[in-house]
């Protein structure tokens, strides 16, 4: 078996699972001020993902670590070329993490108001930046033998922005559905109704993205070569339609599940289109970073495969267990009474 391909698949899976899991935390974080009319409601939103957000973020750390271990050249060039956007992403992730912890530690309205805004901004920035970054990776970065010719401004090209908007909309929808599923009463109803409203612009952005991808990227070439993979984008579209249908039927849990599939499908669509590139060059394909020219040695890939196939299943098992442990809706009364809550 070609370990390069195994690691390409793992790489895609790590990113997809990360976006599926942190997507609802980012979305709920962006929305918690809008959905929560008072402090207690906002705390319900934050506590709805309180026990799991940190574990969700680890998928990103692992995606980064896996890129380093399996494709070190891609890791080195991707992180240094995208220095400024990654820096902003880093700042946002740092602020977001401490905001959850710090917010509840003082009573004052100013204190909490500040951290509320910190949460909104530090949830929006990663959603947008991940979208912009992946949009640019899909369309290729300007690199040749002399190195990188891009800049922060150049990343904000129309396709990058559409892709950024797509990520923001996907996570907003995902977050609204999550809050609808995890909360009760008015808060849950508001979240559900917002999810219906958000679905229309999400659909518009998704359609624009899919159409634009045909012109801005070479992602669809792989699908022409192997049409069997079309099942992934079709699944993503079906799941997106499913979100609205299931919402119409009043089944928010199923709609949330469908939103999970949408995110997995969208990331999968992009990653399959990239193969065998990790980061294509839009100047000369000779300088594209592929799973072959940027990978670790066969020996390292073997070791890392052993590690991944031993530990990732264990991780998945206890992640499922912890989601089951904290399943069910969170009520305002329970948050108010729980002195360990955020």
């Amino acid at each position: 078996m070609d370990l390069h391909i195994v690691w390409f698949v793992l790489w895609g899976v790590l990113w997809a699972v990360y976006f599926m899991l942190d997507g609802f935390v980012l979305g709920a974080g962006m929305l918690h001020r809008v959905l929560g009319k008072n402090d207690l409601d906002r705390r319900v939103v934050i506590n709805s993902f309180g026990p799991v957000w940190d574990g969700n973020e680890v998928w990103l750390i692992t995606a980064g670590g896996a890129t380093f271990a399996a494709f070190p050249t891609t890791y080195a060039l991707m992180f240094s070329y995208l220095y400024t956007p990654l820096l902003l992403l880093l700042f946002a992730l740092i602020v977001r993490g401490v905001s959850f912890e710090f917010r509840s530690k003082e009573e004052g309205a100013t204190w909490r108001g500040c951290w509320d805004w910190a949460i909104v901004i530090s949830s929006f920035v990663p959603a947008l930046l991940f979208g912009v970054a992946f949009g640019n990776i899909f369309s290729g970065l300007p690199m040749d033998q002399a190195g990188y010719h891009g800049s922060l401004i150049a990343l904000l090209n129309p396709y990058g922005i559409v892709s950024g908007l797509l990520f923001v909309m996907l996570f907003l929808e995902h977050g609204a559905l999550y809050v609808a599923v995890k909360s009760t009463g008015d808060l849950s109803r508001r979240a559900e109704s917002l999810a219906r409203t958000l679905w229309i612009p999400l659909l518009v952005v998704a359609v624009v993205f899919l159409g634009y991808t045909n012109f801005a990227t070479k992602l669809y070439d792989n699908y022409l070569k192997a049409p069997v993979f079309l099942v992934v984008p079709l699944l993503a579209v079906a799941a997106l339609v499913g979100v609205r249908t299931l919402l119409g039927m009043g089944n928010t849990l199923a709609a949330f599940a469908s939103s999970c599939v949408t995110i997995l499908g969208v990331v999968g669509t992009g990653v399959i289109g990239l193969f065998p590139n990790l980061i294509p060059s839009n100047m000369d394909s000779l300088y594209s970073l592929t799973i072959y020219n940027s990978s670790s040695s066969e020996y390292t890939l073997q070791i890392m495969t052993g590690v991944a196939f031993t530990f990732v299943p264990v991780v998945i098992l206890y992640k499922i267990w912890v989601y089951r442990l904290f399943r069910g809706r969170i009520t305002a009364e329970a948050v108010a009474a729980d002195h360990e809550a955020y």
Binding site: V58, T62, P72, V307, K319
Partner: peptide, 24 residues
Amino acid sequence: GDIFGAPLAIEATVAFFMESVFIG
């Protein structure tokens, strides 16, 4: 990266997941 990346990736897989899940 061929040798240094491995312990970092293992740290995330073996330790960070366990730490973050059980602290929750």
